[in-house]
C-alpha cells in the first residue's frame, strides 16, 4: 500500500470540499461570475472524484482487473480510437438514432391521431402508462430473433422503448392548453388544425421535450443491452461483453466513457433545443 498517494487523495478531497464551501458562500457580483461559479463547483467535485479514484486505486494497488485507475482508462481510450469509433457508429449513429427518431415520431403521430377520439384516449393512455413501467428491455431477444443480428433489431427495441413515453407525454401535453386560450381560438373561428398548430402543440412542447429527454437515455440503454443478445462483431454492447470476458476492464471503461459522453451530449442537445423552442416557458425564462 502506498500511503502517500492515499493520503494525498484524501487531502485533495478535503481541500476541494473546503474550496467548494467557500465558493458557494461567495456572493456573485454579476450574472457572468454567477455562471462561472455554478460551473466551477460541480467541476471541482468531478475532478475530486477522479483524483480520489486515481489515488485510491494506485495507493491500495487495486488490481486493474477490478478497477483500473482513470489514467489507464484514458490511455486505453486514446490508443483505441478507431475501434471505439466503429462501435459508436454501429450502436449510436445507426441503431440509436434510427430507433429514436422512428419511435418518437410514431408516438407523436399516434398521439395526434387519437387526439380526436376520447374513447381511444381513455383506452390507450392507461395502457401506455402501464407499459412505460414494464421492463420493455426484455423484448430484446425477440427483436433479435425477428430482425436479425444487425442494427435493425436494436433500432426496433429502441422504437418500442421510446414509443410509449412519447405517446403518454404528448397526449398529456395536448390537454395542457388552458380553457381561456381555447375559447379565444374559438372566438377567432379557427378550425381544429389551426388550434392544434398555433395553440395546442406549442403548449404541449414542454411535455414533448420531457419525453424526448427521457427517451434520449432510454434509447442508448436499449440499443446497448439489445447487443448482448447477438450482434455482428462490432458495437458498444458487443465490445463491453466480450472485453469483460477477456478481462480487459480498461477497454470496458473506455467504452463506458464513450457511452456516457454520447449520452450526455445527446441529452444536452435535446435540452438546448428545448430552451430554444420553449423560450416562453417559466422554467426557461426564470433561469
Amino acid at each position: 500500500m502506498n500511503t502517500t498517494l492515499v493520503l494525498g487523495a484524501a487531502l485533495f478531497w478535503l481541500v476541494a470540499w473546503a474550496a467548494n464551501e467557500w465558493l458557494v458562500r461567495l456572493r456573485p457580483s454579476g450574472p457572468l461570475t454567477a455562471r462561472a461559479q455554478s460551473i466551477a463547483v460541480p467541476l471541482l467535485f468531478g475532478v475530486t472524484l477522479l483524483v480520489i479514484w486515481e489515488g485510491f486505486t494506485r495507493g491500495f494497488a487495486v488490481p486493474s482487473v477490478l478497477l483500473p485507475p482513470p489514467s489507464a482508462i484514458w490511455a486505453r481510450l486514446v490508443s483505441s480510437v478507431p475501434t471505439l469509433w466503429a462501435d459508436f457508429r454501429q450502436t449510436f449513429l445507426k441503431a440509436v438514432l434510427a430507433g429514436y427518431f422512428l419511435g418518437c415520431g410514431l408516438g407523436f403521430v399516434v398521439a395526434i391521431l387519437i387526439d380526436r377520439s376520447p374513447f381511444l384516449q381513455r383506452g390507450l393512455l392507461p395502457l401506455g402508462n402501464f407499459v412505460s413501467a414494464l421492463p420493455i428491455i426484455g423484448i430484446a431477444p425477440i427483436m433479435v430473433m425477428w430482425f436479425g443480428f444487425d442494427w435493425q433489431s436494436k433500432a426496433a427495441v429502441v422504437v418500442v422503448m421510446t414509443f410509449f413515453p412519447m405517446l403518454v407525454n404528448t397526449s398529456a401535453g395536448l390537454a395542457a392548453a388552458g380553457h381561456m386560450e381555447r375559447d379565444l381560438m374559438r372566438t377567432y373561428a379557427s378550425g381544429y388544425w389551426q388550434t392544434l398548430l398555433k395553440l395546442r402543440l406549442p403548449a404541449a412542447a414542454p411535455f414533448i421535450f420531457n419525453a424526448l429527454k427521457i427517451n434520449s437515455t432510454l434509447a442508448l440503454i436499449g440499443a446497448i443491452v439489445a447487443e448482448f443478445f447477438g450482434t455482428p462483431i462490432v458495437g458498444m454492447g458487443f465490445r463491453i461483453s466480450t472485453e469483460v470476458g477477456r478481462m480487459n476492464i480498461d477497454m470496458v471503461w473506455a467504452e463506458i466513457a464513450v457511452a456516457a459522453l454520447a449520452g450526455s451530449l445527446f441529452y444536452g442537445v435535446v435540452a438546448l433545443t428545448e430552451r430554444a423552442v420553449t423560450f416562453w416557458h417559466p422554467s426557461v425564462r426564470g433561469g
Binding site: 440503454i221 448482448f228 458498444m236 454492447g237 461483453s241 469483460v244 463506458i256 449520452g263 450526455s264
Partner: peptide, 15 residues
C-alpha cells in the same frame, strides 16, 4: 443517469 448503467451491469457483476 446518462451513463447507460444497464449496459455496464455485466461488468459490475463480473467485477
Amino acid at each position: 443517469q446518462t451513463v447507460p448503467i444497464l449496459a455496464v451491469a455485466p461488468m459490475i457483476i463480473v467485477v
